[in-house]
Amino acid sequence: MATTAEEVTNGKETNGGDQEEVAVEVEPKTGVSFPVKLDDGKQLNCVGVRKKSMLGLGIKIYGFGMYADNEKLEALLKSKIGKAPEKINKELYQLVIDSDVEMVIRLVIVFSSLTMSMVRKNFGEGLGASIKKLTGGKKNDELANKLMGEASDKIKLTPGSVIEISRLPGYVLETKVMGDVISKVESELLCRAIINLYLGDDPLDKDAKDKFGMSLISLF
């Protein structure tokens, strides 16, 4: 991903005492920083913000970064499409939504009054709507609620708290809250529904979706 003016670098000590530069990209609306590469090699393809309308105001709930195994994404796109399309199109996004390529969505909370029950309700509703779109109108609230189902209301979410949702091989969706695994669900539909929330026809942040699309074209 090309370096932008919004990217800064942090120094990181290695065992030999040499400086290893770790670049981060800052989501401008929230100020949240995301490393451009995870320890396992997944690369950051976009950053964005989740807003929720409350009392007529657009409240920022969390900043997010979407990571992927870009080598596998590149192989998938080239095998299905061949050469780079002239512009981003729905087929590109749909390939990513439907694929089994490993991805991580990292959410960093910025809203100070967020509770675990609010997160559960929010994801349950969002995923429920996403599942209906993917299935031609069929409801599956039980599946939608599995993502955050095991998360205890005792978990305190303060600004800076991290939730990570990972799509693993075999269409397994794993959710971690502050590093602790709270759910692991094997479901192709749920995996597609979560990515559809961010890259589908009605994305949570259109600018982030567009950035992800540009990163897909750059893989060609």
Rank of each mutant, 00 (worst) to 15 (best):
M1R: 06
A2Y: 10
T3A: 14
T4K: 13
T14I: 10
G16E: 13
G17K: 06
Q19S: 11
E20F: 10
G31S: 02
P35H: 06
P35I: 05
P35D: 10
N45G: 15
N45M: 14
M54G: 02
G56S: 07
L57M: 14
G58H: 11
A68V: 06
D69W: 08
N70Y: 05
N70L: 15
K72A: 14
S79N: 12
A84D: 02
P85F: 02
L92Q: 09
Q94E: 15
V96S: 01
D100C: 05
E102L: 04
M103R: 11
I105H: 10
V108T: 14
V108E: 12
S112H: 05
S130Q: 10
K133S: 12
L134A: 10
G136Q: 09
K138H: 06
K139F: 00
D141K: 04
E142W: 00
A144F: 00
L147A: 07
S152V: 06
L157S: 09
T158Q: 14
I165M: 15
Y171N: 14
E174R: 15
D180M: 11
S183R: 09
V185H: 03
L189P: 08
A193W: 03
L197G: 12
D202M: 13
D205N: 14
K206M: 12
D210R: 12
M214S: 13
F220K: 03
